[in-house]
Computed example of a mutant assay.
Amino acid sequence: MKDLLVGDIGGTNARFALWRDNQLHAVEVFATADYSGPEQAIEYYLADQGVALGEVSAACLAVAGPVDGDEFQFTNNQWHLSQRAFCKHLQIDRLLLVNDFTAMALGMTRLKADEYIEVCAGDADAARPALVIGPGTGLGVGCLLRQGERRWLALPGEGGHVDLPVGNAREAAIHQQLHGQIGHVSAETVLSGGGLLRLYQAMCALDGDVPRHKTPAQITDAALAGEPRAAAVIEQFCRFLGRVAGNNVLTLGARGGVYIAGGVIPRFAELFLRSGFHTSFTDKGCMSDYFAGIPVWLVTAELSGLLGAGVALEQALHD
């Protein structure tokens, strides 16, 4: 039986694994800058695993951006892919390209008990959609629908680019400060790694402070060490995330629960759990009671996108 290959390709790194018995095997991480394209990185990976060209029958790659047609240009790195040329080069019969947040959403179906933390208690309604939202390099937003005992549908979108919601005078002032600098203020403008730095700079400007930190990591470290300014920025970040997540729950009717994924929040999980996220999440006026009983989980798993690519491939081959 031929092998199956899965990949999760971001701006900086690409993760590859063999998919066997519905599980990941031999996960390796490659720097995208070290290879001219995905074919070259995968060829090296397969050789490292002792898998010859022609021994992989199908592959699924999770990629950042809308997937349409044969050609795909990666958003945050120099790679380009033609599906036909890819299959010919690697002697693969079938290539499935999926949006990276489609894979992330499908990865939620494979979480283990120690790979998520309960943020808000509740009982998920399995017949209703679940929301998957993830601040990382950008802000990913997706919807997960159960279609049977072992069948799932992930609906990707561009929800990270909706307008940043404002709930009070302070947030209105922050929005105005950002708008004056960059124009349109999307949710991703703030709710991402780079957005955390942008939020910090905007809050310093509003309060007449000189920014001391130059990277998101420095802000996070300072907040964890108890610096008031950095802690206030993290608190506001969490509150904005609550507003955006709550808006999406209402839009989708996501009583199936909310998964907070991505690489940003786990870096300050303790602060997040103590933050005003829940207050902002449920602050919806006459619809505030709608949120009673909707569970929220913080996902700490590192390979959800790669697992989701495996789930997508498994379902596609079953079809």
Results as ranks from 00 to 15, higher is better:
Ala245Thr: 08
Ala173Trp: 06
Ile182Gly: 06
Arg151Asp: 15
Val185Cys: 09
Gly148Trp: 13
Pro129Gln: 11
Glu171Trp: 09
Phe240His: 12
Val132Phe: 07
Gly195Thr: 02
Leu241Asn: 04
Gly136Ile: 00
His161Leu: 14
Phe237Leu: 04
His184Cys: 10
Gly167Pro: 00
Ala154Trp: 07
Leu191Cys: 08
Trp152Val: 08
His175Asn: 14
Val166Cys: 07
Leu191Lys: 04
Asn168Met: 12
Ala130Trp: 05
Val244Lys: 02
Ala154Val: 11
Ala169Gly: 08
Cys204Thr: 00
Val210Gln: 13
Leu139Asn: 03
Gly157Ala: 15
Ile182Lys: 10
Ala127Arg: 10
Gly195Tyr: 04
Ala169Asn: 14
Glu149Ser: 14
Gly134Leu: 03
Ala130Ser: 15
Pro135Phe: 07
Gly246Ser: 09
Gln218Ile: 00
Val244Met: 08
Arg229Pro: 02
Gly160Val: 08
Arg229Asp: 09
Val166Glu: 06
Asp125Cys: 04
Glu149Gly: 09
Leu241Gln: 09
Ala121Gly: 06
Arg128Asp: 05
Glu171Gln: 15
Asp123His: 11
Val185Asn: 03
Ala121Trp: 05
Gly194Ser: 10
Val166Lys: 01
Leu224Trp: 07
Ala222Gly: 07
Gly194Arg: 11
Asn247Met: 13
Pro228Leu: 12
Pro129Phe: 10
Ile219Asp: 01
Thr215Trp: 04
Gly148Asn: 12
Gly193Met: 03
Ala222Ser: 12
Leu206Ser: 09
Val166Met: 07
Glu227Gln: 14
Ala172Arg: 14
Thr189Met: 08
Gly157Thr: 12
Val162Arg: 11
Pro135Gly: 02
Pro165Asp: 09
Arg239Ser: 05
His184Asn: 14
Ala187Arg: 04
Gln201Asp: 10
Val132Glu: 02
Pro165Ile: 04
Ala222Cys: 08
Glu158Cys: 12
Ala126Arg: 11
Ile234Gln: 04
Asp207Lys: 12
Arg150Gly: 14
Leu144Thr: 05
Arg243Met: 14
Arg198Gly: 01
Cys238Met: 07
Gly122Trp: 08
Gly134Asn: 05
Leu131Asn: 02
Gly246Lys: 01
Gly142Asn: 13
Pro211Ala: 00
Leu144Ser: 05
Glu158Met: 15
Glu235Ala: 15
Glu227Met: 09
Thr189Gly: 06
Gly148Met: 10
Ala217Pro: 00
Arg151Gln: 15
Ala169Cys: 10
Leu131Met: 05
Ile234Thr: 04
Gln201Trp: 01
Glu158Phe: 15
His175Leu: 14
Leu191Met: 09
Leu206Glu: 09
Lys214Asp: 09
Gly226Trp: 13
Gly160Tyr: 06
Arg243Lys: 13
Val233Pro: 05
Glu227His: 11
Leu178Val: 08
Thr137Ser: 10
Leu153Tyr: 13
Lys214His: 14
